[in-house]
Structure formats: C-alpha cells, structure tokens
Design a protein around this nucleic acid. Structure first.
Length: 441
DNA sequence: TCTGGGGTCCTAGGACCC
DNA sequence: TCTGGGGTCCTAGGACCC
C-alpha cells in the first residue's frame, strides 16, 4: 500500500544524468582497441609503489577480480590478463570535451550542468518536440552518439528533477542491460524507499548513517516516514533536505546552478615521507602556493582568502592544523607564498609533517591590480608582469622549464608534480607539461 | 590501509557593530 | 555590569561527492 504525496507543486522536467562507465579505464581500452566491457584493465596512480592506487577499474576487472576503485597495488590479484596502466589525465580531459560537444547537440549550454569529469546533467524538456522523442529515447540517442564517436559506454538516469535522475543512474541504470533507468515521482516509494544500504543514497555517508541509526532510522522509508521537525532539530538544513530527498523532492534549477557555485582552487599532497626539516616543509608550501597562484591567474581572478592545512605524521601525537586568513585581493605568487608561510609559521608546532594542502577562495574577477598601500606601485606592477611572463614561458615549454633554484634541492616536489593533472599523471611527459591545461574539472 | 587529490556545503561560536 | 539583543562577518571543523 502506498502513501499519498502531492507532487503538483514540484518540478516536472525531463532531466537526464549521464555518466561514463569506468571512465578512465574505458578510455584506455578504447585507445587500445579493446572492448571496454570485456577487458580487465585498471588505471593506477603511482604504480611504481606497492601503495599505488586504482583510480578506475573496468567492469570486467571489478566483476571477475573483485577490484574496486580504491584498491591498492598490493591488493591486486596476480592475473595474466589483467592490464595495469598509468593514468593519462590530459587524454581524459580531451575525451571529456568531446563528450560535452556531443551533449551540446541535444541541449543548450544553460541546460547542461557538468557535475564531474565523467558525469553531467542535461535538461531535455524543451527539445522533446524538436527530436520527436521522449526523454528515454533522447537518452538512447545520446548514448549511441557517444558510443559511435568515442567507443565509450555510458549509463543514463532519467527523472523529473536532478535528484531523481541521479538516483536512477546510481541505483538502477548501472545494473540494467540497456544502461538506462527512469524514475518519476510515481516510483519514489517502490524505488527510492528500497535503496539499500542507506549509504547508497546520495548525501548519506557513514557518519550521517550512524546519526540516523541513533534516531532509529535505518532505511530510506523510515526516513521518509520520520518526523520532519525532529530531523530539522537534529540535522538543521541537512535534515530538511534529507527528508525532501527521501520523497524524491529536489527543487534545484539546473540553469541557476551555474551561477551559484562558490569557487575555490586548491592543491594538496600527501608527502612520500615524513618531513622533519622546517625549511623543507616551507619549500613545498612555497611551491604549492606558486602552483595554485598560477591557476588562478589563468582564470583571471584574484583571491581574498587563503587556507593552509597541515597534517602531521601518524607517528606524531598531534593531528595537524587547518587555518585560513583574509587578505587583500591578489594573484601574485610572491605575496601568496608569503601569506601561506605566515600561517605556517604562526601555527606550526614542529611535528613531522605528512600532508600539505593550500586553497584559495573568495575570488574577485578583475584584471586590475589591488595596489598595496605600503609598497611602491612600480615594484608591485613589475612583480606581476614578471609572474605573467613566467606563466607564459611555462605554458610554452612546460612547468619544469622555469623553476626557482630551490626546487632543485632535496625535499622539493614541484618538478616531480609538474606532470600531474588533478594529482595524477597527465600522460604528457614531453617538455610541454600538464600545466598548460587546467586541473579543475 | 602500506596516508590520493580536488572540490562544495553546512554549523557553531567568536568578534564586532549599533 | 549580578547577564541586552539582533545582525553580520569570519573562522574552524565536519561531512559528503567524484
């Protein structure tokens, strides 16, 4: 028996959520002329170490060998047919662009929302007439189009809103033979309420599952039938959202989502060893401050907020710290490195360091220079021009063509990392390094 | 775990203002 | 000063996603 819910005020769109099956692994199969569904292949970052991480495993590797996306090299079975290949992030970015250009044949720019490197939402409500097709048929056209052009299989979820499309994708389309699933408000009680375990539901991780469990809520159905006031008291906004989601309700507008993203750019790394020497840690911070500064210059923005996170070694008694600081708008490497070091020196306890992360946020988009009142204007402009020149040379000849002498010393990681994109090998090992591309997806 | 990397969003609590 | 109160901005920390 089902319970009545009035959906007349909710969105009734045709949203398709598309995701490329095992994206990185499938691209590698396609490049080798191998069947992406039958080949056992994994893309592995840092494959030279025993701790190498599986970024993507083909479905055959997952099914036959039980490999998952965060498996380690030391976990992998020894199988003669298993192909282990290094990542080529720049290639995946290229394929991502080609897929996007296919999406644009089926919807206008503002009706497409890129969710990640291999996932996007497409609103097709307004083009059904044009294609003389319903959403399900349009999803099939998109899937076939991508397969013909790129030899990649995609899965598609279809729904009245973005949440339903995404849930249909994650919880059904991935397991059906035609790689599609359509979830409408009518299906909420039979489809959403039976998602199991509860952490398979979008937005519920282990921590939230545990807190729900303490309230006696162990299934989506129990969540939907819970007292929304109690949920709000316990979880705040998240509680209201969880409740709405359990009924398949999501009022977010795909076209407005474009405007509301609050952006930040960051780099982070887990170091290959514990760093004890203060100067060596400072050096890595300077290098990373430089990398992220370069990215924001490429996007023509200036940051007004920097954030430094230091994680200490597990051999240490302390966990580390995470601090941010407002600054006057800048994208100057020199200034940003200075501020990052300021934070570091203020809070560093002297413990062995294993992880470093630098984030810039709260951007202003302008080409004007915010002149510092306490510095000579000429020297500030000169500094910025110098940094733009350095960017230009690196675009042309690769990051490693022009580095501070300090990056050649022990402990420095910038040169090694200059071929990384999104933290993994770009596949471009020639002089024109990965850094001519952007790392954000 | 033999420490991956890049993001977004929410909350509590402190500082400051009127 | 044996407790004012509301609003806004900021920071640290938590949680989640791909």
């Amino acid at each position: 028996m089902s319970i009545k819910m009035d959906y007349s005020e909710e969105l009734h769109e045709d949203i398709i959520c598309v995701d490329v099956k095992s994206f990185y692994a499938s691209v590698e199969c396609a490049e080798r002329g191998l069947n992406p569904l039958k080949t056992m292949l994994v893309v592995m970052s840092n494959g030279e170490n025993a701790g190498g991480l599986v970024l993507s495993a083909s479905s055959a590797a997952k099914k036959n060998l039980g490999i998952s996306n965060v498996s380690r090299k030391y976990d992998l079975p020894n199988h003669p047919d298993l192909l282990i290949v290094p990542p080529r992030m720049s290639l995946y970015l290229e394929k991502n662009k080609e897929i996007l250009s296919i999406f644009r044949k089926y919807a206008t720019e503002e009706d497409i929302l890129i969710y990640s490197i291999d996932e996007a939402f497409i609103k097709v409500t307004n083009v059904k007439k044009l294609f003389k097709a319903d959403a399900y048929q349009i999803a099939r056209m998109i899937q076939q189009d991508i397969f013909h052009h790129l030899n990649l299989y995609t899965t598609a979820g279809i729904g009245d809103n973005m949440l339903l499309a995404k849930l249909a994708l994650d919880n059904e389309a991935k397991y059906t033979s035609d790689m599609k699933a359509e979830w409408r408000y009518n299906d909420v009680q039979s489809k959403i309420w039976t998602i199991h375990p509860i952490t398979n539901f979008w937005g519920i991780g282990n921590r939230t599952a545990l807190r729900l469990h303490r309230l006696g809520i162990n299934t989506i159905k129990e969540l939907a039938l819970a007292n929304p006031v109690q949920l709000k008291n316990q979880f705040g906004v998240i509680g209201e959202q969880l409740y709405a989601h359990s009924w398949g309700i999501d009022r977010s507008d795909i076209t407005e989502k474009h405007l509301t993203l609050e952006k930040s750019y960051s780099n982070s790394q887990i170091l290959t060893k514990d760093y004890i020497v203060r100067a060596e840690i400072e050096l890595v911070i300077k290098e990373m401050a430089d990398q992220v500064a370069r990215r924001i210059r490429q996007h023509h923005c200036q940051t007004t907020c920097i954030h430094l996170t230091i994680g200490y070694s597990s051999n240490s008694n302390e966990v580390g710290f995470s601090r941010q600081m407002k600054i006057s708008a800048t994208n100057s490497t020199k200034l940003l490195a200075h501020y990052c070091l300021l934070l570091f020196n203020k809070y560093y306890s002297g413990a062995a360091t294993r992880q470093i992360s630098i984030t810039y946020s709260k951007f202003i988009y302008t080409t004007d220079i915010q002149l510092d009142l306490f510095q000579e204007p000429d020297s500030q402009i000169g500094q910025l021009n110098l940094e733009l020149l350095v960017d230009h040379v690196r675009d042309k000849y690769g990051f490693a063509s022009l580095v501070h002498a300090s990056s050649l010393t022990n402990g420095a990681t910038a040169i090694k990392r200059s071929h990384l994109l999104g933290g993994h090998a770009s596949g471009l090992m020639n002089k024109k390094g990965a850094n001519s591309n952007d790392q954000s997806f």
